[in-house]
Amino acid sequence: MNTTLPPRLRLDRITKAFGGVHALTDLSLDVMPGQIIGLIGPNGAGKTTTFNVITGAYRASSGTVLLDGQAVTSEPPHKIARAGIMRTFQNIRLFSDMTVWEHLLVAQPHSGLAVRRLLPMRFSNRKTIERAEEVLEFFALGNVRNRPARTLPYGLQRRVEMARAVTARPRLLLLDEPVAGMNHDEAEAIRALVLRLRQGGLSILLIEHDMAFVMNLCDELYVLDFGILIAHGRPAEIRANPAVLDAYLGRAA
């Protein structure tokens, strides 16, 4: 890997405390350009908290979040989003009563002059429309474009959420349990999509409990337990790591 490039995302000793409870302690993590990195760990390990710190929903108690070498740590969420970090949610959060198509338009807030955005949609920026068409085709959502997104089946809703997240061409995509509740075939389809997104130059950090999915997809894994990084390595190394086995299985004993 080219060492002169800064990592796409670097978490440098992030700590997040809620009162006296440390949700994250000294977490450091790198995502290099074009990598797919998995963040795993038992429930309550601090995975979603990590996402919330990266996207600015939570402010880190200490430590730095760097996007391509630039600190974004104390920026508000919309600025971090515009800087190029987008996410999906564990419990899907689509806009109610918006169609699939409208989701793809609203996810491009920086396209065009403010005055022009006050004009009716058909006078809207051509590039906005073209980009939305492109994403619609990429995610194979063309035949449901005018359906209210919330009325779609669960698997499709996940797709719409991913589509909304990549429409504004982010540099880093955070996926929070992208295949939760999906059957094997649906999960395979998502895996193929994630790989194609990576081919397009996107870096991806994902949380997932489905171990088969994670092991098959990620370049590297980070394992959290009680907010502390307990292991980091390639999937094969993680599989054989006793500390990881202990965190997942040993708790009950």
Binding site: H78, M86, F95, A107, L119, P120, A168
Partner: peptide, 27 residues
């Protein structure tokens, strides 16, 4: 007229889910 514009989509997004709206870059 504004109801047919992109700004109105942003307004609807904010009304519906402010957090999600922020995370797609809406202020």
């Amino acid at each position: 007229l504004i109801e047919a514009s992109p700004i109105w989509l942003e307004i609807r997004a904010v009304r519906d889910d402010e957090t999600a709206a922020g995370l797609v870059g809406l202020n």
